[in-house]
C-alpha cells in the first residue's frame, strides 16, 4: 500500500513538474503573473514548512523575514547599485541574522505562547519600516526604482521570465529540503515535533535544532524577499503585514507537512480566490467554507509526509540473518544468556 502511495506521489510530482514547465505557453500574461505569485508563496511556505511542518514550531511571523530580505535587496540595489542577484545571499543572511537575534530568547517557549511572540515580531518589523528606521526604508511609501535582475547579460523583465526564475528556485528548494528531511537534521526536527522531552532525553540538543530550523527558514524567506523586490520593483511595508504571515502559515497547515502538499496547498490558497473572482464579494465566504470542510474531513492536512525510505536496511538485515544461521551450529551466543 505504501509502495502504491509512494508511486502515486512521485507520479504526481513529475506531472506537476511537467505542467509547470509548459504552463506559461498555455495561459495569458495575467495567469502567468498569478502563477509567479503562487510560486513566491510556495517558496515562503516551503521555508516555513521546515520550521512549522518539520519541527512543529508555531511561527506566525514569517512575513517579517520576507520583509527583511526584500528591504535588504531594495536598499543595496537602489542606494549602492548592487546587482539584484548579488544581494540575494545577503538578503538571506540578513533575515537569518534577525531570526537568530529575535528567536534566541524565545525559542524555549511552547506552542501558542511562541505563536503570540512571533506575531509580535512581524508587527515590530512592519512598524519599524513604516517609521523609516535609520532613514533608509522610505517610511510607508517604501522603496521604488529597484532595477531588473540580469543573468549573464540577460535581463529578466517579462512575466514568464520571472515565472521560470521563481519556480526554478522552488524546484531547487524542493530538492534541498528533501535531502534535509532525509537526514539526521530532518529526523531531529521530527523528534522535537513529536516529543521534545524525549528528544532531549535521547541526546538531541532541542534548542539548538529549533534555532537552526528557524534561521534556515528565515534565510530562505529572505531570499524569497529578493525575488519579490525584483518582481515588484517597488516595495512597501503594507506588503509584509500580519495577514501575509497568516496566509503562509495556513498554506503550511493545509499542506499536511509534505513538500508536494505545500505546492498543492499554495495553488489552492492563492489560485482558488483568483478563480473565484467572478463571485466577487462572496468569494471569501466560499473560501472560508472550503477551509471549514477541510478541517472536518481532513484535519491532518492534504498530504502528510510518507514514511522515510531506508534502502540499505533490507540488505543489512539479510546479511545479519545469514550471519546468524552461520553462527548457529557452533555457538548460540546472546540468546542463551
Amino acid at each position: 500500500m505504501s509502495f502504491n502511495a509512494r508511486t502515486i506521489r512521485l507520479g504526481s510530482c513529475m506531472a506537476l513538474g511537467l505542467v509547470l514547465a509548459v504552463l506559461p505557453f498555455l495561459v495569458n500574461n495575467y495567469w502567468t503573473d498569478v502563477c509567479v505569485s503562487i510560486g513566491l508563496y510556495a517558496l515562503l511556505a516551503l521555508s516555513l514548512n521546515v520550521i512549522l511542518g518539520q519541527a512543529g514550531i508555531f511561527h506566525m511571523g514569517h512575513a517579517a523575514f520576507y520583509a527583511v530580505g526584500a528591504y535588504t535587496t531594495a536598499i543595496l540595489n537602489t542606494m549602492f547599485q548592487w546587482p539584484i542577484f548579488w544581494t540575494m545571499p545577503l538578503a538571506g543572511c540578513a533575515a537569518g541574522l534577525v531570526a537568530l537575534v529575535v528567536a534566541r530568547p524565545i525559542i524555549h517557549l511552547r506552542g501558542d505562547y511562541l505563536l503570540i511572540v512571533t506575531i509580535g515580531i512581524v508587527e515590530i518589523v512592519r512598524i519599524a519600516l513604516v517609521n523609516d528606521i535609520f532613514g533608509i526604508t522610505g517610511g510607508s511609501n517604501g522603496i521604488f526604482g529597484i532595477s531588473r535582475p540580469t543573468v549573464a547579460g540577460f535581463r529578466i523583465v517579462k512575466s514568464f521570465h520571472f515565472y521560470y526564475l521563481v519556480w526554478g528556485m522552488c524546484g531547487l528548494s524542493l530538492l534541498l529540503f528533501h535531502f534535509l528531511w532525509n537526514s539526521r537534521v530532518g529526523r531531529a526536527l521530527n523528534y522535537i515535533k513529536a516529543d521534545d522531552i524525549a528528544a532531549e532525553g535521547c541526546g538531541v540538543d532541542v534548542s539548538h535544532y529549533k534555532l537552526m530550523a528557524f534561521v534556515l527558514g528565515a534565510f530562505w524567506a529572505g531570499m524569497a524577499g529578493t525575488l519579490y523586490s525584483a518582481k515588484m520593483l517597488t516595495i512597501a511595508p503594507a506588503s509584509f503585514n500580519f495577514m501575509e504571515s497568516v496566509i503562509i502559515f495556513a498554506v503550511v497547515i493545509l499542506s499536511g507537512g509534505s513538500q508536494l502538499g505545500v505546492l498543492v496547498s499554495a495553488f489552492l490558497f492563492i489560485g482558488l480566490p483568483e478563480l473565484m473572482r467572478g463571485l466577487t464579494e462572496s468569494r471569501m465566504l466560499f473560501f472560508g467554507l472550503a477551509m471549514m470542510l477541510m478541517m472536518v474531513w481532513r484535519p491532518q492536512g492534504l498530504l502528510p509526509p510518507l514514511p522515510r525510505v531506508y534502502t540499505k536496511a533490507r540488505a543489512v538485515l539479510d546479511r545479519m540473518a545469514a550471519h546468524d544461521s552461520d553462527a548457529k551450529p557452533s555457538t548460540t551466543q546472546e540468546k542463551t544468556l
Partner: peptide, 14 residues
C-alpha cells in the same frame, strides 16, 4: 543522533 556528525550544510547538499 548524538554520535553522528552531519550538520545542516552536509545534510542540505547530501
Amino acid at each position: 543522533h548524538c554520535r553522528l556528525k552531519s550538520g545542516l550544510l552536509s545534510s542540505l547538499f547530501h
